[in-house]
Design a protein around this nucleic acid. Structure first.
Lengths: 221, 221
DNA sequence: GAGACAGTGCGACCTAAGTCGTATTCGTGC
DNA sequence: GCACGAATACGACTTAGGTCGCACTGTCTC
C-alpha cells in the first residue's frame, strides 16, 4: 500500500508546500476506494470532507428530476474536489460525485482542512488557484449553454479536446451530451452532419478534425 | 471625500481582518468612478486589478456575437469582483463588467493583492468564501440552463427574489431575460401565462406571488 | 400638451432541439 | 464462429423557445 506522505510529494499541486504542512495533511488523510459507477457522495448531504484523487477519475454532476445529467467537472489524478462546501455556511455538498473509473481518494475532514488553510497561506493559494480554474470552467459552460447552439458547443468541444487532429480519449456520445447539456440523439445528429459537411471524419470511433477553420467558425453559434 | 480606511472598517467582508492588513489594503486602493452604463473592463483584456464596490452596483456578463447577454454576477456594496484572473496563469478578465448604476469602486492591483493574500490567511479566507459563493451560484445557473425550461427558471427566480410575496426590486423583463439565459419576449410570455394560470398577479409592474406552491412545483422543469 | 423613449403586450411564424421507435454496428467473452 | 450488451444510426414527429412586426402605455422633458 502506497504511503500518503509519499503520494503528496509527487502531486504537482501539493509538492511545493512546506514540509510541515505536507506532513500535517498526510496525517489527516483517510484513504478510500470506490469501484466504477459507485456514488461517492450526494448533493444535499452534509459536506463533511474534501477529497484528493489518488487514482482514477471522478465525475461531479447534477441530475434533473427527469433523470437528465449535467456534468460540472471531471476530476483526475492529484486534483481536489468537494472543497466548495468547506467555505460555505450551508456546508452541504452542492453536487453529486460518482466514480467514473475505479477510484482511490484521500478524504480530509472539513475541520482539519480549514485549520490547515488558516495556518498555511501556501495551501490557501493552492485552493484559490483551483477555485479560479473551476470558476473559469463554469463560466465558459454557462456561456455555452446560454449563448451557443449545440452545434457551436460541440464544435468548441472537439477543438478543445483534439490533440494532433484527433480527439484523444474515446468519448461516447452519451458522455459528450451530459457534458454539453443535451441528449445523446442530438449529439449523434450533429456529429453526422459535421461529417457530411466535411468538417470531421469518423475513423472507427475516433473523431478526426478535417476542417479546423470550419469548426472554428461553426463554434460561434 | 470619504476615507478608504474608514470604508474598509465598515465593510462586513473586511471588517474582521487584522488592523495591519486593513491598513495595508487601504494604502493600496485606488478610487475610481463610473457612470451608469459605462464599461469598467472588457473580457479578454489583461486582468491587472481586482475591485471592491464602494457605491452602486455592477453587472458582470458575457456577450454572444449576436449581441445576446448572459449575466454572470451582480455585484453590490462591499463585494469584490474580478478576483478570478488574479489566480490564473492566463491573467485575463474572463468577463465584461459594466456599471449598472453610477458606481464608485476601489481598485487593487494584482501584485499588491497577491502579496497581501500570501501574508494574510484571513484575507485568503475572505476570498475563498467569496469564490465558494460564486461557484455555488454558477453551478445553480448551469443547472438552470441545462436542466430546466424557461418557465422553471422563471418560477425559481420569482421565488428566490420575492420578499413578503412581492418581488423586491423592479426588474425589467429584459434584465430577467439576461439573467435567466433567454430573451425579453419569452419572459414576457411566461409571465403572462403564469398570471393567466393564477400563479402570480401583476400589480402595476410589481409581481405578486399568488400561488407559491404552484410556482414551486412549476420550478422543476 | 406634444414628443420622445423605455418598457410591455401580443399574434404569426420558424427552427433548434428534444422524443420515440426501431434497426444496425461494434466489441467482448465464450 | 455465435451471442450478448453497449453504442450508434436514422427517420418521423412534437414542442419549447427564439424572431419579427407593430401597437399600446406610462413617464419624463421641454
Amino acid at each position: 500500500m502506497p504511503d500518503a506522505a509519499d503520494f503528496i510529494r509527487r502531486m504537482p499541486l501539493l509538492a511545493n508546500l512546506p514540509k510541515d504542512v505536507q506532513a500535517r495533511i498526510s496525517r489527516r488523510m483517510i484513504r478510500r476506494s470506490y469501484s466504477a459507477g459507485e456514488t461517492i457522495f450526494i448533493e444535499g448531504d452534509p459536506g463533511r470532507a474534501a477529497y484528493l484523487v489518488a487514482e482514477g477519475r471522478v465525475r461531479v454532476h447534477r441530475t434533473s428530476r427527469a433523470g437528465r445529467e449535467q456534468v460540472l467537472a471531471r476530476i483526475g489524478l492529484g486534483q481536489l474536489f468537494n472543497t466548495v462546501p468547506l467555505f460555505r455556511h450551508d456546508a452541504r455538498n452542492h453536487a453529486t460525485a460518482q466514480a467514473a473509473t475505479d477510484v482511490t481518494v484521500y478524504a480530509i475532514l472539513r475541520e482539519d482542512l480549514l485549520r490547515l488553510v488558516q495556518d498555511s497561506p501556501e495551501l490557501a493559494l493552492v485552493i484559490l488557484r483551483d477555485f479560479a480554474e473551476r470558476l473559469d470552467h463554469l463560466t465558459n459552460l454557462v456561456e455555452d449553454l446560454s449563448l451557443r447552439t449545440v452545434r457551436g458547443r460541440l464544435a468548441r468541444f472537439l477543438l478543445v479536446h483534439a490533440k494532433e487532429g484527433t480527439v484523444r480519449r474515446q468519448w461516447t456520445q452519451e458522455e459528450m451530451a451530459s457534458e454539453l447539456g443535451t441528449v445523446r440523439d442530438v449529439i449523434g445528429r450533429a456529429l453526422r452532419s459535421f461529417a457530411s459537411e466535411g468538417l470531421i471524419r469518423m475513423d472507427r470511433h475516433r473523431i478526426v478534425l478535417v476542417d479546423r477553420e470550419g469548426l472554428e467558425s461553426e463554434s460561434d453559434s
